[in-house]
């Protein structure tokens, strides 16, 4: 595969995988927490939280990227604090991961929320009467029963992160080897004469990863569902 892809193309693929993996894994705990809160809790400002989570889905990605830059740039209100601790996101691959995570977050939360809502609260009650504290109810009943949806949500988020372009290029630009993910690389190759062949290879990789993610999520979902279904 490294022979087929040139070094520049390979760097883009590897970087995309790295960025998407981190974006997915780092946002998953937050995604589960927010999905649980939206599915099970009643609290003031629930609709506001729901709106905020879904905002990246409807805002133009460029706007999301620019807001991230304002917020997390080295002179932004959050970014300057992080910079004091030595964490710099703007124009770094970590920033690309943040942008990808924010853009994929609504899809992740939606899938997980649906699967948590599908867990019968009566089973959670039964667990509580058997002595499980709320945390244990969550860990031993809610989480395992919602697992198919959590896995599906994570894979969906991963696939979305692989394809993120607008917010990424606005927030962290298009620096080869640092922030040039597959979509940015395709865009860059198409800007130079004779870049179509490279772009085409990356398009094939993109399609392959997306299809692979879909098939994998279906397969895992079915396996877990069969276990939970008890057949």
């Amino acid at each position: 595969m490294t022979d087929w892809l040139g070094p520049e193309e390979w760097r883009a693929v590897a970087l995309s995988l790295q960025v998407s993996m981190w974006a997915t894994l780092a946002s998953l705990p937050f995604g589960i927490f927010i999905a649980y809160a939206l599915a099970r809790w009643h609290f003031p400002g629930k609709q506001v939280l729901n709106g905020l989570v879904h905002l990246p889905l409807i805002l133009p990605p460029v706007v999301t990227g620019y807001l991230l830059l304002l917020l997390l740039g080295t002179r932004g209100p959050v970014g300057s604090i992080l910079a004091d601790w030595g964490i710099i996101l703007a124009f770094r691959w970590t920033g690309a991961a943040v942008a990808a995570a924010v853009m994929a977050f609504p899809l992740m939360v939606r899938a997980i929320r649906l699967s948590i809502e599908a867990v019968d609260p009566k089973l959670e009650q039964a667990s509580a009467t058997l002595g499980a504290s709320p945390v244990w109810v969550f860990l031993t009943v809610t989480l395992p029963m919602a697992l198919p949806g959590i896995i599906a949500g994570a894979i969906l988020a991963f696939a979305k992160a692989m394809g993120e372009f607008g917010a990424t290029i606005t927030f962290v630009s298009n620096i080869p080897g640092e922030t040039r993910t597959i979509p940015s690389a395709i865009y860059a190759f198409l800007q130079v004469p004779g870049g179509e062949a490279s772009a085409m290879k990356l398009v094939v990789v993109s399609v392959g990863v997306a299809m692979g993610a879909l098939v994998l999520s279906e397969w895992i979902g079915r396996r877990v569902a069969a276990r939970v279904g008890g057949a």
């Binding site: 089973l123 395992p144 029963m145 939970v228």
Partner: peptide
Amino acid sequence: QEGRLFPH
């Protein structure tokens, strides 16, 4: 009444 066994 409905048992409520944990299916997983």
